[in-house]
Design a binder for these strands. Structure first.
Length: 278
DNA sequence: GTGCCATGTGAAA
DNA sequence: TTCACCTGGCACC
C-alpha cells in the first residue's frame, strides 16, 4: 500500500533491522543478480525515503534505490527467515534480520551523485524535515493544470498518491478541476500543513486515515478512514450526495460534487451557481 | 476458489 | 500510448 507514509515506515524499519550491520545481498529470482553482487558483504549504514522512493545507503557510496510501484513489497522478518518463496527480486540478510523485496517497479544500485540527481527531480516530501513547500508552490501558482493533476505530480509534492489526492481535495472542499493558478498562497499553505499532519498520522497508524470524528457516527472499530476514495455511488458523509469518479492522470479520481466547489480562494463556503467540476 | 482491481512508475513500442 | 511488474485484498460464486 505504498504512498509516502508507507515508504517512510519501511525506511525506519529497515534502518532498525540492518543499520550498522554487514549484510548479505542476493537475488533468488535472478533478475537483480548483478545489483545484489554490488551490495553483498557491505555495511548498510542507513535507510531513508523521499516521497515514494526508498534509499538504502551502503559503505563505499553505494545506494540501493527501490520504488515499490503499485504492488511491490519489501518485508522484513527476524533471521534466519523462511526460504524465499515466489519472485524475490532481492533478499537482504544479516545475523539479526532478513528482508525480501518483491515486484518493485524500480530496483537499482546508484552512486551518491546519482541519488542526488534523482532526488533533485522530486518535489518536497511532507514527511521530511528538510522539505521546502515553496518549491511545489512555484509550479502550482503558474499552472493551468487542474489541482487533481498537479497533486499527482511528484515534482509538486513528493509522496502523495491517489488516496491522499482525493482525500486532501475533499477536506479542503476544493473542486478537483480548478486550475493551480486559481489557488491563493494561503490555501496552498493550508493544504501543505494539513498534508504534513495527515501523512505523519499515516506513518504512526500504518494506514491512511483522513476522516474527522464529527463526520461519522459509527464506533471506533468500524469507523471509515476515507471520505471519498473508492466510495463511488455511496453517500458523502457530510452532505449525502453520491460520490462520483472519473479518470484524471490515468487514475480514478473520487470526489463529492456538492462539497467540493471551491476554486481556490481563501474563504470557505462561498455559494456558486455552477459548481463545475470539469 | 476465482477473478478483478489497485495506494505507481519506467520501459517498450 | 500501452505494457510490465506478478502482490494482495476483496467481492462474488
Amino acid at each position: 500500500m505504498p504512498e509516502g507514509h508507507t515508504l517512510h515506515r519501511l525506511a525506519a524499519e529497515l534502518s532498525g533491522c540492518f543499520a550498522g550491520d554487514v549484510v548479505r545481498a542476493s537475488s533468488p529470482q535472478g533478475r537483480f543478480a548483478d545489483g545484489a553482487r554490488l551490495l553483498d558483504n557491505r555495511r548498510l549504514t542507513a535507510a531513508e525515503s523521499w516521497g515514494k522512493h526508498l534509499f538504502c545507503h551502503f559503505d563505499g557510496e553505494r545506494v540501493l534505490h527501490v520504488h515499490l510501484g503499485l504492488y511491490g513489497t519489501f518485508v522484513a522478518s527476524p533471521a534466519p527467515g523462511a526460504q524465499p518463496r515466489g519472485a524475490v527480486r532481492l533478499r537482504l540478510a544479516s545475523s539479526r534480520a532478513v528482508a525480501d523485496l518483491r515486484g518493485p517497479t524500480a530496483c537499482s544500485v546508484l552512486t551518491g551523485q546519482e541519488r542526488q540527481a534523482l532526488v533533485s527531480r522530486l518535489g518536497p516530501d511532507p514527511l521530511r524535515g528538510d522539505a521546502d513547500s515553496a518549491r511545489g508552490w512555484q509550479i502550482v501558482r503558474s499552472s493551468r493544470r487542474s489541482l487533481a493533476s498537479l497533486l499527482m505530480d511528484q515534482a509538486v509534492i513528493s509522496g502523495i498518491g491517489n488516496v491522499y489526492r482525493a482525500e486532501l481535495l475533499f477536506r479542503h472542499r476544493l473542486d478537483p478541476g480548478a486550475p493551480g493558478s486559481g489557488l491563493t498562497f494561503g490555501v496552498w499553505q493550508d493544504l501543505w500543513d494539513d498534508l504534513v499532519i495527515l501523512m505523519r498520522h499515516g506513518v504512526v497508524a500504518g494506514h491512511i486515515d483522513t476522516v474527522r470524528p464529527q463526520h461519522v457516527s459509527s464506533g471506533e472499530e468500524d469507523r471509515p478512514h476515507v471520505y471519498v476514495y473508492r466510495r463511488t455511488g455511496q453517500p458523502c458523509f457530510v452532505c449525502g450526495t453520491r460520490v462520483r469518479t472519473r479518470v484524471v492522470e490515468g487514475r480514478n479520481l473520487y470526489w463529492c460534487p456538492t462539497c467540493q466547489r471551491r476554486r481556490g480562494a481563501r474563504r470557505l463556503g462561498s455559494p456558486r451557481a455552477s459548481g463545475s467540476t470539469a
